[in-house]
């Protein structure tokens, strides 16, 4: 008989967070007793202090909102192009024949390799960052939407047609929900790429945003602010993932007992 360890609700919530929290405590102790130099890693309390300072001045909120809006606008632009093109190529074999080879070739270019091109085309303003984010999120969404459409059970489509579903109704009731699991996988990939691209783009050239905050702080040797921006990226990435997971469990709530 295995009595087993049955954690309660609070404990269940705490388990995944125990490692990061433990690491922060260890880090605080090491820094506090001077085992690691503050020039290598400032103590967490210092990071928190700088966070408070930057919040009070309003800079932190502005940087976060600038970065977030860049990320989201890029996601919407690139994501919707990927979604539409994925649907289009998924439905029309002619379109797939015409476009897929091109898309596969472009996909194999690391989109970050286009940073110099983006800067020459768009300068260091908003456009170049949006371009890079949009380009980065496009491919996972395109590929997974395309795959999702193609993998919808043909038996269900046939059934829909026999039961009088045509055009848009068939799309809304059968094809889109059938492709949804795959599309959501694409979205989660895209969210990861979205932050990655934004961090790189903001670090290279920017005049606002979290990446700018980090690079600016580096010039003034403000290690605590650099660490703060890295932590912010981690938290924002986690937040995006939680939202995507929430969306997934809502959209796919019909997948009971699986």
């Amino acid at each position: 008989m295995t009595s087993g360890f049955r954690p309660g609700r609070t404990v269940k919530f705490m388990i995944p967070w125990s490692v990061p929290v433990g690491l922060v405590i260890l880090w605080q102790l090491l820094a506090h007793f001077g085992w690691i130099s503050s020039r290598i890693l400032p103590e967490p309390a210092g990071v928190i202090q700088s966070a408070i300072r930057l919040t009070e001045s309003g800079d932190l909120l502005r940087y976060i909102s600038d970065s977030t809006s860049r990320a989201l606008v890029g996601l919407v632009i690139g994501g919707s192009i990927g979604l539409v093109l994925g649907f289009f190529n998924g439905f029309f074999p002619v379109a797939e024949k015409l476009l897929d080879t091109t898309i596969q070739m472009l996909r194999n270019i690391p989109h970050l390799a286009l940073i110099p091109v983006a800067i020459l085309w768009f300068g260091i303003g908003e456009e170049s960052k949006l371009f890079l984010v949009a380009l980065g999120v496009f491919f996972p969404l395109y590929l997974n939407t395309f795959h999702g459409i193609r993998s919808v059970d043909p038996g269900l489509i046939e059934m829909g047609k026999v039961y009088g579903l045509r055009g848009w109704t068939l799309f809304w009731k059968v094809i889109l929900p059938g492709a949804m699991p795959s599309i959501l996988v694409g979205l989660r990939y895209s969210l990861g790429i979205m932050w990655l691209t934004l961090i790189v783009a903001e670090t290279i050239s920017s005049d606002t945003g979290i990446g700018y905050m980090a690079m600016n702080a580096r010039e003034f040797m403000q290690m605590d602010v650099v660490v703060l921006s890295i932590l912010l990226y981690a938290l924002l990435g986690k937040l995006a993932d939680v939202l995507a997971k929430g969306l997934e469990s809502w959209c796919l709530r019909w997948r009971v007992n699986r």
Partner: peptide, 21 residues
């Protein structure tokens, strides 16, 4: 048509499946 497999839409409740079309 009634097929060999039920071919129900897994993302619709039983009543919505029945009311399909």
């Amino acid at each position: 048509v009634m097929f060999q497999e039920p071919r129900l839409l897994p993302w619709q409740k039983v009543s919505d499946n029945v009311a399909l079309g």
